[in-house]
C-alpha cells in the first residue's frame, strides 16, 4: 500500500500552479456559456424561422457539431483557425473560440425546446398588440423560454465546466493541467490527481445541488 502524503500541496504551490489554471477553466466556462447561449438562441430562432434558407444551415451546423467528439472539434479548430487567419493562435484563445462555437449547438437545442414550449397564443398576443416579430421574440417569447429552460441551461453549463478539462488535447493551461504540473514537479501524481478529482467533484456537485433547488422553486412558481 502506498503512503499518501498531501503535505506538499501548500497554499504557495496551489497559487503558483493551480490558480492560473482554475481561473482559465472558469473563464472558459463563462465565455462559452454566454457566447454559446447568445449564438445558440440565434441558431434556435433560425431553425424555427420557417425559412428553408435559414433552417437548413442552422440544422446542419447543430447536427454536425453534435455528432463529432468534442476532442476532435478542439483539434479541428486548433488546426483550422491558424490556416484560415494566417497566423498562429494560442491554445487558450483557440479553446475559447472552440468551446463557444461547440456549446452553441447544445444550447441551441435547449433554447429550441424552450421556445417551442411557449404557447402559440403568446406570439399571437404579441402581434395583436402591434409588436414586430423581433419585439415579440425579445419581449414576450424569449424571456419566458429562457426562464423555463434555466435549470437545463445551467445543467449544460456544469457539463461544459467538466468538459473544459478536454483542452488537455491542445495543451491549454486549465485546472487539470495545473494539477498535472504539480504532480510532475513534486513527483506525486497520485495525490494531485486525487485532489483534482475532489475539486471537480465538489464544484460540480454543489452546482448541481443548487440547480436542483432552483428547479424546485421554479416549478412551484409555475
Amino acid at each position: 500500500m502506498l503512503n499518501l502524503d498531501f503535505g506538499f500541496l501548500t497554499a504557495e504551490v496551489l497559487s503558483a500552479y493551480v490558480l492560473k489554471g482554475f481561473l482559465f477553466s472558469v473563464q472558459l466556462t463563462f465565455v462559452a456559456m454566454l457566447g454559446g447561449i447568445v449564438l445558440g438562441t440565434l441558431l434556435a430562432l433560425m431553425r424555427l424561422s420557417g425559412h428553408a434558407w435559414l433552417m437548413m444551415p442552422a440544422a446542419a451546423y447543430v447536427n454536425t457539431m453534435r455528432s463529432i467528439p468534442l476532442v476532435m472539434v478542439i483539434l479541428w479548430f486548433f488546426l483550422l483557425i491558424p490556416l484560415l487567419t494566417g497566423r498562429p493562435l494560442g491554445a487558450e484563445m483557440s479553446a475559447l473560440i472552440t468551446f463557444t462555437l461547440f456549446e452553441a449547438a447544445y444550447y441551441s437545442e435547449i433554447m429550441r425546446a424552450g421556445i417551442q414550449s411557449i404557447p402559440r397564443g403568446q406570439i399571437a398576443a404579441g402581434y395583436a398588440l402591434g409588436m414586430t416579430y423581433a419585439q415579440t421574440m425579445r419581449l414576450v417569447v424569449l424571456p419566458q423560454a429562457f426562464r423555463n429552460m434555466l435549470p437545463v441551461l445551467l445543467t449544460q453549463t456544469i457539463i461544459l465546466f467538466q468538459d473544459t478539462s478536454l483542452v488537455y488535447a491542445i495543451g491549454a493551461y486549465d485546472l487539470l493541467k495545473g494539477f498535472e504540473l504539480v504532480g510532475k514537479n513534486f513527483n506525486r501524481p497520485v495525490e494531485t490527481y486525487l485532489v483534482a478529482a475532489l475539486i471537480y467533484f465538489v464544484i460540480s456537485f454543489s452546482l448541481s445541488t443548487l440547480v436542483k433547488r432552483l428547479q424546485a422553486r421554479i416549478s412551484i412558481i409555475r
Partner: peptide, 12 residues
Amino acid sequence: FRNIPLLVQIFL
C-alpha cells in the same frame, strides 16, 4: 461518477 470529468476519471 457524474460529477467528475471523464478525462479526470480516466487518469484516476
